[in-house]
């Protein structure tokens, strides 16, 4: 299996001189195409920075990040923007949607920004898949939190991106709703062959992934295949001890 994203000795340092803080330290990893990867770690472990660098939201201080064959680390801000809207999808924890736009408009926003025509059957298929076909003309304020996250997933999928990145996509949801959203993400991997990378701190959420990466102190300290919630929670607890 090839890698969708390859990171090669990637470091990210915030600040300068004595105030410098290293959020990522020489991380090298490949995120497999068609796989569902979860990234876990305690607060301050660098998992958000990992996601930002992998997704082209931020440029690393050193090292190489490649999406497919494209090097991201040296791109300009506008080049990154164009790349993101064509090849990457995002689902954030909250505030995913533009409140003034309808569900359909929100989903097709990346296409609109890119000036690409909308593939109607594909859009209809996505709407049906996320279960919002009857809500297409609603505005975000009229939707529940779970529905809003499903709209965000639909928007992430609409460009047929190489990777969908999620930053705590279930962090603001209750357990039942979170399960629906995670199931939806799992289905996109299994049925559409979508690559998904998700940062989370919830062992249950991580257990939906194929692989879990554990970050601590800017390093990848462990990986776990076929995770179960108990095993992940157990590993996290020891990770906390290990960091001490």
């Amino acid at each position: 299996m090839t890698d969708a994203v390859t990171m090669d000795v990637v470091s990210k340092v915030y600040g300068k001189g004595r105030n410098a803080v290293a959020a990522l330290r020489e991380v090298s990893i490949g995120l497999p195409r068609g796989g569902f990867t979860a990234v876990m770690g305690p607060s301050g472990s660098g998992k958000s920075t990992f996601l930002h660098c992998a997704a082209g939201l931020d440029r690393p201080t050193a090292g190489s990040v490649r999406l497919g064959g494209t090097e991201l680390a040296t791109m300009s801000e506008t080049q990154l923007t164009v790349l993101r809207r064509a090849r990457i999808g995002f689902v954030f924890q909250a505030f995913n949607l533009v409140p003034s736009l309808t569900v359909t408009q929100n989903i097709t926003l990346p296409l609109r920004l890119a000036g690409t025509p909308v593939d109607r059957p594909w859009l209809a298929g996505i709407l049906a898949r996320v279960g919002l076909a009857d809500r297409a003309d609603h505005r975000p304020a009229q939707l529940s939190g779970g529905q809003q996250q499903r709209v965000a997933i639909a928007r992430a999928l609409v460009t047929r991106p190489e990777v969908v990145f999620g930053d705590e996509p279930t962090g603001a949801l209750d357990t039942m709703t979170a399960r629906d959203v995670l199931t939806l993400l799992r289905e996109t991997v299994d049925q559409l062959g979508q690559t998904v990378v998700m940062v989370t701190h919830d062992p249950v959420a991580a257990s939906y992934a194929d692989t879990v990466l554990f970050l601590a102190d800017g390093h990848i300290v462990d990986t776990m295949a076929a995770p179960s919630p108990v095993a992940v929670a157990d590993r996290m607890t020891r990770l906390g001890a290990w960091v001490r």
């Binding site: 939201l57 801000e77 506008t78 923007t81 164009v82 993101r84 809207r85 064509a86 995002f90 954030f92 505030f95 995913n96 949607l97 533009v98 409140p99 926003l109 990346p110 920004l113 890119a114 928007r155």
Partner: peptide
């Protein structure tokens, strides 16, 4: 700001 940052993240260029 939050809304505009979101637009930037899901792929609006500064020019847009």
């Amino acid at each position: 700001q939050r809304e505009l940052a979101l637009l930037r993240a899901i792929a609006a260029t500064p020019r847009q």
